[in-house]
């Protein structure tokens, strides 16, 4: 990534904001995915260049990422203007012109689709919730917790120490249940889709906010596993295509 920022701007804040911009299908930040090609700023105007996996990346998803990038960066203190550039994308011109003028997707592509980007983005946020929850469930299982025990857990039974996630088991013992990041991402998404995040709420709830019983957990996990594998399809596809494109360039 090429960086050219004046000292007056806080780099860390910029990266923090970009962490929040997700590829909706991959459920990972564009920063982590390596989509950010360059960031330059001068007298309060930042220009960011994104390199998406394929020249033909669906315009709606490309639009979402460009729009989110601009929105997030405009909240950074010291920036009054943000220009997003899409490198090597078939609809770069249209997307850039509209996103940078603050227009919506349907204004930019009136003939392209009847889709509502908010609904689409919501669908992926919800599938992403299941995926993140599945990772946490696997960690709990791997730590030796039974379904009965998992079903009884409340959010407050979980805490972080250093970069690990710990749990107070009902026998009073403390148990390490893997990387803190897994649980953090789960809670972050849980809050984003407005599910109860209070300490007394059950740790595992479904998308409707209902508790999952011990008897239901096994099947719930089997289904969650398939959702995860499904979500990884585009990720596997896009990263392979991106790698091939980078090799060619």
């Amino acid at each position: 990534m090429r960086l050219s920022l004046p000292d007056t701007l806080d780099r860390e804040i910029i990266f923090k904001r970009l962490e929040k911009v997700l590829d909706p299908e991959l459920d990972e930040s564009i920063l982590k995915l390596g989509f950010v090609k360059s960031i330059e700023a001068e007298s309060g105007h930042l220009t960011i260049e994104l390199h998406l996996p394929t020249y033909w990346c669906a315009p709606n998803f490309s639009y979402m990422m460009a729009e989110d990038t601009r929105r997030e960066l405009l909240t950074v203190e010291g920036l009054h203007d943000v220009t997003v550039r899409l490198k090597d994308h078939f609809a770069a011109q249209t997307i850039e012109a509209s996103v940078n003028a603050g227009k919506s997707f349907s204004e930019a592509f009136p003939d392209e689709t009847s889709e509502n980007l908010c609904q689409l983005s919501d669908l992926f946020l919800r599938k992403g919730y299941i995926r993140r929850q599945e990772r946490l469930l696997q960690n709990l299982k791997n730590a030796g917790l039974s379904f009965e025990e998992i079903a009884l857990l409340r959010i407050g039974d979980l805490y972080f120490e250093n970069e690990s996630c710990r749990i107070r088991r009902n026998n009073g013992r403390i148990c390490d249940v893997g990387d803190a990041e897994v649980a953090r991402q789960y809670f972050q998404r849980r809050a984003e889709i407005n599910l109860d995040c209070s300490p007394t709420a059950p740790l595992i709830i479904d998308l409707r906010g209902n508790e999952v019983t011990a008897e239901g957990l096994e099947e719930y996990l089997i289904r969650a596993r398939t959702v995860r594998v499904a979500l990884q399809a585009n990720g596997s596809f896009c990263t392979a295509v991106l790698a091939a494109r980078k090799g060619k360039n």
Partner: peptide, 13 residues
């Protein structure tokens, strides 16, 4: 566009 998209799939995988 269509065939270039296919070609991207071809070279990538």
């Amino acid at each position: 566009g269509w065939i270039r998209c296919f070609y991207d799939f071809h070279t990538a995988l």
